[in-house]
């Protein structure tokens, strides 16, 4: 767009422009923003296509509430873990709310991620060229479930402890590698203090890092390939109708070419079909 120069600019705006230009020259931030935000998407995208973004926002909320909880949580089995959960729930200002949001956020995230996946599946949006977007998404679902598994132990109450003992035993029952996985998860042959700090580290460092990486890949694929069009968008339905018309027209032409074919007035079949439609 060309603008007419109407005189010297406001100095504040001038320096802001200069700063943006300076950063853009070195980072390409303007191009990047255009690439990310101002790309075109097909018209008539559906409300069902908001679930992926929602899952990402819930993950962000889990990260923020998780950081706040980590400020008060003590991953120590010898009087610390359980007591710190009690302190967060009963003493810390808004602590019950932050813990409640983190706990409910986990359940909601599982549901949102599952619904998002069901949408992609039902629409066939995993097909060419978006196969790898699906694969990264499938890993994100598995990582989300591992988040739930490792986070469950941290409250260190009877229910969580014994459910996790059983869950780790399940992993350990796998043939050949199972016993090693069991030892890695437990940090040894027995459940104990080392197990809790290991789960804590997996829950707040390993898996979040993996999830962030996969979200990055997932987003890159989405922006690069574009979000899919609903299979029944107005545009698609119009194209399908036109194709159907062309097919019928061709069949009619073939019928006409047969020896001894009766020729109807050209307007008749078209009008009949108009009525059907």
């Amino acid at each position: 767009m060309t603008t007419k120069d109407i005189g010297p600019k406001n100095p504040v705006q001038k320096s802001a422009d200069a700063t943006i230009d300076y950063v853009d020259e070195r980072s390409g931030v303007k191009t990047g923003t255009r690439w990310f935000l101002f790309r075109n998407i097909p018209e008539g995208t559906s409300w069902f296509q908001t679930l992926g973004f929602t899952a990402m926002v819930v993950f962000g909320m889990q990260a923020i509430t998780g950081i706040i909880l980590a400020m008060y949580y003590v991953p120590d089995t010898r009087g610390g873990a359980y007591e710190s959960i009690q302190r967060i729930t009963e003493e810390v200002t808004w602590g019950w709310l932050v813990r409640g949001m983190h706990k409910w956020g986990a359940s909601v995230m599982i549901i949102v991620v599952f619904l998002h996946m069901a949408r992609v599946f039902i629409w066939g949006a995993y097909k060419y060229p978006r196969e790898l977007t699906w694969v990264t998404g499938a890993f994100l679902l598995l990582l989300t479930m591992f988040m739930g598994l490792t986070g469950y132990l941290l409250v260190w109450d009877q229910k969580a402890y014994w459910a996790t003992v059983v869950a780790v035993n399940i992993f350990a029952s796998a043939p050949i590698v199972g016993p090693y996985i069991g030892d890695i998860l437990r940090a040894g042959p027995e459940f104990g203090p080392a197990t809790l700090s290991r789960f804590y580290s997996i829950h707040m460092l390993v898996i979040p890092g993996a999830i962030a990486t996969f979200i990055g890949l997932h987003l890159y694929f989405i922006v690069r390939l574009g979000i899919s069009e609903p299979p029944w968008s107005k545009r698609r339905l119009r194209i399908e109708r036109d194709e159907e018309d062309a097919r019928r027209e061709a069949a009619r032409e073939r019928a006409k070419a047969l020896p001894g074919a009766v020729t109807y007035p050209a307007t008749w079949p078209a009008k009949a079909e108009e009525g059907v439609r």
């Binding site: 706990k103 109450d157 009877q158 969580a160 014994w162 459910a163």
Partner: peptide, 19 residues
Amino acid sequence: VEVGEPVNPATTDFVPRPE
């Protein structure tokens, strides 16, 4: 949210229920 019973590995009086 509630605070459950503290872990006691010695008594196995538990219901192993996951999320």
